[in-house]
Amino acid sequence: MLEKNALLLLLLATVTILVGTVVTMVVPFKWINDPKLAIASVKPYTPLQLEGRDIYIREGCNNCHTQTVRPLLSDTERYGEYSKTGEFAYDQPFLWGSRRTGPDLARIGGKYPDAWHVKHMKDPQSMVPRSNMPKYAFLDRPLDTSLTEKKMQALKFPYTPQDLAEAKGKTELAALVAYMQKLGNDIPWRQANKAAVVGELKNPFQDNLSVLPEGKALYKEHCAQCHGDKLQGEVGPKLSDMDKPDAQVFTTIFSGSPNAGMPAFGDTLGKERTWKLVTFLKHQQRH
């Protein structure tokens, strides 16, 4: 019968398609973004952050970067606390992406100081050797704010004239960095997750010169971008005559120093490699 009745076929095909649609796409609206899942500390974007987000969209950053940390060890150890539904309540559109050609950015906010981002965005390879990210130096141009207020109204985000003024006279790059610094930072996960260093902080490689080449390589890969090739300091302070106990140097590298803009490297390096780095740094200081 269906082979002969086109209208019936059309109707039945429509109904068939709609079953799964309703169950898995329409019904979840009742659960997702439920007030119970809201997180009070998650705030809407400010005008400057929103403009930055629109630049992120315009340049198609989501083609290479995801914005969801999955509750899997390789994700949480690398990027931080796993992503919660409530954190995305103001994301129209969502920007979770589908491919990590570059790293996930859901927890990038607060990881590096602004100056790091600016340098990196203009010339990624200068900060991360062998990175394949395109250069975005052209973003160092005035930000167009003619639509900012309309955008805030369209999304029903609260703002004050002061907020709007804050976005004026900025560069596109500054807006993008403002957006990235907010990412994943609305919940206090960094404080909560701060790696507690347990046990005795004793350098297992003290005076072990054989680890120096590895320490030097680690420095070149992870530290030189901010502290300079010769430890002379750039974005971060100079390290060439650092006079601090091994345990303190270890703690700073391993857990970071958020207020000073120093990222935590414990996740990336682990204890052993951190100690090798400490040994290298301390060895530089002696000469």
């Binding site: 898995t24 796409m25 997702i32 973004n33 103001y90 994301d91 129209q92 559109p93 969502f94 979770w96």
Partner: peptide
């Protein structure tokens, strides 16, 4: 802007 937000938009 998308009419849906966050996880809804993703779904």
């Amino acid at each position: 802007y998308s009419a849906y937000a966050g996880a809804n938009d993703a779904n």
